[in-house]
């Protein structure tokens, strides 16, 4: 039984993915499937809400890296919001803030989509 889940929500024209639980090499395929679902539905403005994400390893980070270029080529973006400090530290360790918009709140990420700074 996986201790990771992805919830789907829309906010304006943005697809919000609510991550819950622990994201590792076993559960990363569920995040990958969620992003592929967004692509299949031509939803390229993707907001990852990490408020309830308890853990991430490089396998989880690798999913964002594998899809960000494709999503941006379609005029969209993957923005990451509301990470817990211990999870943000892992993103920061690998230099993710240089390549991704990572905001403290979902609202701030939605504002960035509104501003068109994707």
């Amino acid at each position: 039984m996986s201790n990771f889940s992805v919830g789907f929500r829309s906010s304006g024209g943005v697809q919000v993915l609510d991550l819950q639980g622990e994201l590792d090499a076993h559960t990363a395929s569920e995040l990958e499937a969620a992003i592929q679902k967004c692509q299949a539905e031509q939803r390229y403005r993707i907001l990852i809400n990490g408020e309830n994400l308890q853990y991430i390893s490089s396998a989880g980070l690798g999913v964002f890296m594998a899809y960000i270029e494709e999503v941006r080529e379609e005029g969209g973006d993957i923005k990451i919001a509301a990470l817990q400090p211990k999870v943000y530290n892992v993103f920061d360790l690998l230099g993710f803030p240089m390549l991704f918009d990572i905001t403290e709140s979902e609202e701030a990420a939605l504002d960035k989509f509104e501003d068109g700074t994707e």
Binding site: S58, L61, G62, M65, I68, F96, M98, L99
Partner: peptide, 14 residues
């Protein structure tokens, strides 16, 4: 990191 994303790869970080 930049090269990995350009090549749509996420591995090699462990």
């Amino acid at each position: 990191l930049l090269e990995l994303t350009k090549h749509r790869r996420g591995g090699g970080l462990g």
